[in-house]
Design a protein around this nucleic acid. Structure first.
Lengths: 192, 192
DNA sequence: ACCATATGAGACATCAATGTCTCACCCGAA
DNA sequence: TTCGGGTGAGACATTGATGTCTCATATGGT
């Protein structure tokens, strides 16, 4: 039964291709199937055998991004500790997926009429819930809606990823810059 | 001398076409030249007579966006008052260009190898200067670099524009959401 | 009324990316 | 060694957008 063996190898390959594509498309979102294939070290024919077309590839990347985000949310244990600590963990966990997320974030603007992947709604809800918890506990201000804070978090992650990619911000500062701006803002504080 | 008369009308037309294109491309960044022409109420031929091609159109939109931003910075009088008030005015003034800015922001990710329009550097410098002023006066915290705050401002404006466009945030809240998050962050404050 | 100019409509070639196909080749398993 | 499936390379048609062209028409100034 060589099928299972090959099936396994295919899965590895598929994942490798997916991550190469993510890395490339994060930098150049208009990359050709040719370029994607070359970046993954395979031929265009093989790429096409694994992903029916460009759409399928982007969909697969979307699935991957959503999976990684959900894994990050799981690892961040958003229900524990104070809300602010939960947000800190969230950003820390999601950092490795920031590039892919930035790509998908800009790509989502193109999903004009079509319906969005249901996974995004789930993620939005989970993230918004943390901000809502923080508001209800009195940690967070109530004049900024959870929906907006969620949106802003995505935006800051994308901005951060691009700023790092273009060398305007040091990669090491990514987490600090995002978390501190999101939680504390630009103004100095008297209290801790 | 009908040249001057026509020249003037052309300028009006050109501006109208430019703003229609901005409005359309903000919503659908992959819109066809056909769609752009239709949105402006002219034929593709005429559109082509005014802008040599898609590139030229996007370049013209970039020029327009930069001009509007510079006008907003001028109107915001960034050197006066406290830095935080200057930032408030900046966001207020730039709000009308937010959609166009969001489009250009995502479009800029495509300017892979090519050099960026020099205007952006000027804008970056002027905006970063406000944040730096705020840091030097003790208003703003010093662990968030002016470059990052500038980048984050762009990101939040784009996020805000998209969130409003998709109905996730009320248009009236645009200014408050961005300014308050950027300056104050999500945490509650004891002081004003 | 006359003329110049801008416009709209459409035909047409071009170009780039895509999707499909074939065929030779390699490499592991029997 | 032999066989079979996966692969790479390339040819090919297709598609969608683009850029260019022509010509009939409308419009505005003289």
């Amino acid at each position: 039964m060589s099928h299972m063996v090959y099936g396994c190898l295919m899965a590895i390959d598929r994942d490798h291709v997916l991550r190469s594509a993510a890395a490339l498309l994060t930098r150049k979102s208009t990359a050709t199937m040719d370029e994607v294939a070359k970046a993954a070290g395979i031929s265009r024919a093989t790429l096409h055998r694994q992903f029916a077309g460009r759409d399928a590839l982007v969909r697969a990347l979307e699935d991957l991004g959503i999976r990684e985000c959900e894994a990050a949310l799981d690892a961040a244990r958003l229900d524990e500790d104070t809300a602010r600590e939960a947000v800190r963990r969230l950003v820390a966990e999601i950092e490795s997926a920031a590039g892919l997320l930035a790509f998908l974030y800009s790509e989502n603007q193109l999903f004009e009429g079509e319906e969005r992947h249901e996974g995004w709604a789930r993620l939005d809800a989970r993230i918004a819930a943390v901000f809502r918890r923080g508001q209800e506990s009195g940690e967070f201000r109530i004049d900024l809606t959870p929906a907006w804070l969620t949106e802003a978090l995505y935006g800051l992650i994308a901005s951060g990823a691009w700023a790092v990619a273009e060398g305007r911000v040091a990669a090491n500062d990514f987490h600090h810059m995002i978390v501190e701006l999101l939680l504390g803002g630009a103004l100095r504080r008297e209290e801790s």
